[in-house]
């Protein structure tokens, strides 16, 4: 069982730059064909200063932190048992190529179901840009399968 004292566990703040090439690579990986996400000119024509960050890529940037699963070790979570149960985003402002985004993560809740066969860890992330503006918040719920 995951110790409930880990509710409130805070990961070290992590800052990373949104790279153009990485945005194009991500677009390819999800089969994106909309030129707004691929070409500077198309992005500007759509009213963006440069390539925009698509809705789910914020989650990906957070995983660029050194040892993205390091907090699993701290909480005693075994990676092979983990599935992604839920994911939610609330968007406040746009993010673009060249932005430096800072991720602040905190474990909000830990609970069990089915007599402990399934454990759930809920982690909140708050994302701000280089000007300190709140870009988005996201919450992931991990499911840890026992047996």
């Amino acid at each position: 069982m995951i110790d409930l004292r880990h509710i409130g566990y805070v990961s070290p703040p992590f800052t990373t730059e949104v790279e153009r090439g990485r945005l194009r690579f991500f677009a390819k990986a999800i089969g994106e064909t909309d030129p707004v996400y691929l070409e500077e000119a198309a992005a500007r024509a759509a009213g963006h200063p440069t390539l925009p960050v698509p809705p789910t890529f914020l989650f990906c940037l957070e995983m660029d932190r050194p040892a993205p699963y390091g907090w699993f070790d701290d909480l005693g979570i075994e990676l092979p048992k983990v599935l992604h149960g839920e994911q939610s985003f609330v968007y406040h402002a746009m993010a673009y190529a060249g932005d430096c985004l800072t991720f602040a993560a905190r474990v909000r809740d830990i609970y069990a179901k089915k007599g402990g066969l399934l454990e759930f860890v809920v982690q909140d992330n708050q994302i701000t840009n280089q000007r300190g503006e709140l870009i988005a918040e996201f919450t992931r719920t991990l499911v840890i399968r026992h047996g």
């Binding site: 999800i30 963006h48 698509p54 809705p55 789910t56 994911q87 939610s88 985003f89 609330v90 968007y91």
Partner: peptide, 18 residues
């Protein structure tokens, strides 16, 4: 997300969960 944004400007998306 692509399903949504192919017909909605990205800046109009306020919440997205699954």
């Amino acid at each position: 997300g692509r399903t949504l944004t192919q017909h909605v400007p990205l800046g109009a998306l306020r919440e997205f969960s699954t």
